[in-house]
Design a protein around this nucleic acid. Sequence first.
DNA 1: AGACTAACTGAACAGCCGTTCAGAGCAAGA
DNA 2: TCTTGCTCTGAACGGCTGTTCAGTTAGTCT
Lengths: 175, 175
Amino acid sequence: MALFARHGYAAVSMRQIAAATGVQVGALYNHTADKQSLLFDLLSDHMDALLAALEAEALPDDPLAALEAFTRFHLRYHAARPDAVFIAYMELRNLTPDNFARVEAQRRAYEAQLEDILRRGSKAEVMRFDDAKLACLAIIALLTGVTTWFRADGRLRQSEVEDIYWSMTRRLVSA
Amino acid sequence: MALFARHGYAAVSMRQIAAATGVQVGALYNHTADKQSLLFDLLSDHMDALLAALEAEALPDDPLAALEAFTRFHLRYHAARPDAVFIAYMELRNLTPDNFARVEAQRRAYEAQLEDILRRGSKAEVMRFDDAKLACLAIIALLTGVTTWFRADGRLRQSEVEDIYWSMTRRLVSA
DNA sequence: AGACTAACTGAACAGCCGTTCAGAGCAAGA
DNA sequence: TCTTGCTCTGAACGGCTGTTCAGTTAGTCT
């Protein structure tokens, strides 16, 4: 995962992976069918874990409270897994069409949860936006962008970043 | 550019590029020093053109009007060049450290223009946010995310997307 | 007409690619 | 103690990699 995140799937050889794990290249094939499966398993497992973690979060019924919980969860979960997130967004095109479709479906399932919150918030008139789908994509892009610059030892602590981004997200859809 | 955008820098061979341009592989080296220069020139030229186009835009003095102009410019410019944008965001890690630093500097120069608008808006009290730098990065992430899904023949026309995203951007920093 | 320049071809270079496989080592179960 | 089942090594496979270069072609200037 670290190698794929750092250099990209196509630029990393099975021999590099073997060296990083301390075995010879042939031994890798006792654990994976091929290089493509390695990438797919990485992405698919990441999305499974993300969805499971969101389920475990038990979002509140109140739409605004749910949006805050989702926002903070997303930031926290993604900040803790920069490599996995990076791969999940960068290496989709290196999946075979079949594998891409499966990971894409997982990603849509995650986004659907946010869109549902937004639609409920709009219905309850505690949120306002022109287009629920675009607001959903905008928020995801906004929040995920954090992973490109956030460093645990940077200017801002994790909790400060969470607060600031929740503040921006709230305004983005404020009624 | 199309090949790099579709398959990624590392996954495209000089022979593929040669075939796509209708020459033999050796002929490419009359036009580029090596494969790395090909990528760097693509990214650097893109950033140059982006900065030049923004200069030509002549943003208004009024901060809010400038933010709207910037927002619409960014969306319009990026929507028209999906391949170049995709490469500019995905292939940075495939640049040598020297080349990366140069492209990164160009990117920062672009972002600095947005940050300046935000700071002026905050000073004039027509905008509000917790952190200018983060608001800047958030808006860039928000707007650039459009390129991942926008299609000219999709549900929404370009002008509709512009309006909706300007509406969201305005709210994001509303006083 | 002849010289010069630029672009192209086709072949070659050394080296790396993903993957396979025979054989070795070793721990667990009969 | 013997066998079974993993996991490993080390070498090999055909094929592709970026890059170079001698030789050909074609257009431009004197």
